[in-house]
Design a protein around this nucleic acid. Structure first.
Length: 223
DNA sequence: GTTGAGCGTT
């Protein structure tokens, strides 16, 4: 988030985006803004965060108003040590909606491809698929997965394998982990075999126990 | 509380 607006991105037209990599997970936009503002007019500083935890994902976007200032910031701040880490500053190659970007500047927003058409853009589907897959791939850091895997393993040692299925976090927390091929609406309920009832009836259980007792006495008499 | 290649929010 930035100081310039809490309701999403501000004016992204005619701005030059820098991608700032390798920053600390504790580094905030407040830390970055004075650094970058020294070299020009900074329009926005944005640090993508994890949707669930709200933690920083370890990189940032800094938008400049003018290209030469952005270029200067790249030269001056690339490799600068901030909070003990060397951050990498470079021009962004993709826009907020995966637009192609040249020198950090959005070339052609997708909406401009069709002149004022109210209908949907003819080809966001494949782009969205790639974007989704990309997001899945970098949704979490690998080592973080490893960490959670270790925790899960230590807990599953004393639990049954389907413990997580019953104790999974409820509703939307695993949004980014479900399959993209899943239909949003479930028109038909999952088919269930009608011949098998999920739990035996009480009298059947009594009958079964009686049968077991009979079998045991029978077996005990002959063995 | 942990992490470390990469491209983005109401």
């Amino acid at each position: 988030m930035s100081h310039f607006g809490r309701a999403g991105p501000p004016d992204i037209t005619d701005t030059y985006s820098l991608l700032v990599l390798n920053i600390t997970f504790r580094t905030t936009a407040d830390d970055l803004f004075p650094l970058f503002d020294k070299y020009g007019k900074v329009v926005d500083v944005f640090i993508p965060r994890d949707r669930r935890t709200g933690d920083s994902r370890g990189f940032a976007f800094v938008r400049y108003k003018y290209a030469d200032e952005a270029q200067k910031a790249v030269e001056k701040l690339d490799g600068r040590v901030v909070d003990g880490r060397e951050m990498m500053v470079q021009f962004a190659k993709y826009g907020p909606n995966a637009e192609r970007i040249h020198k950090g500047r959005i070339l052609e927003p997708v909406e401009k491809l069709k002149g004022g058409s109210r209908s949907r853009s003819p080809r966001p589907s494949s782009r969205y698929r790639d974007e989704y897959r990309g997001y899945r791939r970098r949704s979490r850091s690998r080592s973080r997965d490893r960490y959670h895997g270790r925790r899960y393993r230590s807990r599953t040692r004393s639990r049954s394998p389907d413990y997580h299925k019953k104790h999974r976090r409820g509703r939307y927390d695993d949004d980014d982990e479900r399959s993209p091929s899943r239909s949003p609406v479930r028109s038909t309920p999952p088919r269930r075999t009608p011949s098998r009832s999920p739990s035996p009836k009480p009298d059947l259980m009594v009958l079964r126990s009686q049968l077991d007792g009979f079998f045991n006495s029978f077996a005990g008499a002959y063995c």
